[in-house]
Amino acid sequence: MILLDLLIGFLRVGLFSFGGAYGAIPLIRDVVLEYGWLTDEQLSTMIAISESTPGPIMVNIATYVGSSQAGILGAAVATLAVITPAFVIVLLIMNILKNALKNEYVKAVLDGLKPCIIGIVLATGSYMVLENIVKKTESIVLDWKSLILSVVIVAIMIVYKMLTKKKISPILLIVIGAVCGVIVF
């Protein structure tokens, strides 16, 4: 049963995740929270690990969730499920539906989906930031340490970009976050 859940859950992620890795995170979050496979804390940990290890983030998270739920077989099922839609769709486009992406109706749908995905990614990201800063227990409490750390991280990103004209690498930022975490908490 768990294998079937993994299959359906990660097929869903693979089939609806437009816009690359970060476009997929809201969908992954939906699935892992719905089935109770990961908490928000564990998901953040996995996103950080996926950023710091090679390979596609979707594949990394699928492998981890599959493995933690049902061992190596679970890992194989979840990983194959997340890549199968992309595999099949590319083969279809190359061999049968050669003009699918030029079709005006397909274009209209993709034009509508892109902004929708951006909205979903922004909502997920800002909710995760908010969740760190504002703790909802009996009353609403501000977590000052997290707030200050968030401001520091954003400041580092902005200053780095101003000085080097390049975006700071996510891995470097994760390392900085880890060091700050050990010091502050």
């Binding site: 950080a48 990201g125 760190n132 954003v154 994760i174 975490g181």
Partner: peptide, 26 residues
């Protein structure tokens, strides 16, 4: 503790990815 710090970075990274996509959007 390190992962508590990393969790803050991850939220910011996702928001930032969304903002980058927004900038490129028609």
């Amino acid at each position: 503790k390190a992962f508590m710090g990393i969790k803050i970075v991850v939220g910011i990274l996702i928001t930032n990815a969304g903002l980058t996509m927004l900038k490129k959007m028609k």
